[in-house]
């Protein structure tokens, strides 16, 4: 069953931060939502899963490079840029 532990786990996977109050509300919402989603659980598993129609190898993009974008256009929307690179707190 859906519970706050599962909500916390999903929040971690989703990289979302919730206050305790928000977490309770989310658990409530998710419980209701999953109740509808449970409809699919009993579906006939012998049916094939959906996949896009395959394309022919010969229709793929030919291997040829073109010019890249100017660096300043790539970094223009970032809030913190140094040495033309995107800055984050140090990761190991």
């Amino acid at each position: 069953m859906f519970n706050s532990e599962l909500t916390k786990h999903l929040a971690e996977l989703s990289k979302l931060e919730f206050t305790d109050e928000e977490l309770d509300k989310m658990t409530e919402d998710m419980t209701d939502i999953i109740a509808i989603m449970d409809k699919v659980c009993g579906f006939d598993t012998s049916k094939p899963a959906y996949a896009l129609d395959a394309v022919d190898y010969n229709d793929l993009r030919a291997d040829a490079h073109t010019n890249s974008y100017p660096t300043d256009k790539i970094t223009a929307n970032a809030k913190n840029v140094k040495n033309n690179s995107f800055v984050v707190p140090k990761v190991v």
């Binding site: 993009r61 040829a64 490079h65 073109t66 890249s68 660096t71 790539i74 040495n83 033309n84 690179s85």
Partner: peptide, 20 residues
């Protein structure tokens, strides 16, 4: 010659974010 999902050049090194 090019990257796997775009047409930037596939080459080693280069200054930061110039092959993007």
């Amino acid at each position: 010659d090019s990257k796997v999902f775009c047409t930037c050049q596939n080459e080693f090194g280069g200054s930061e974010n110039t092959r993007v």
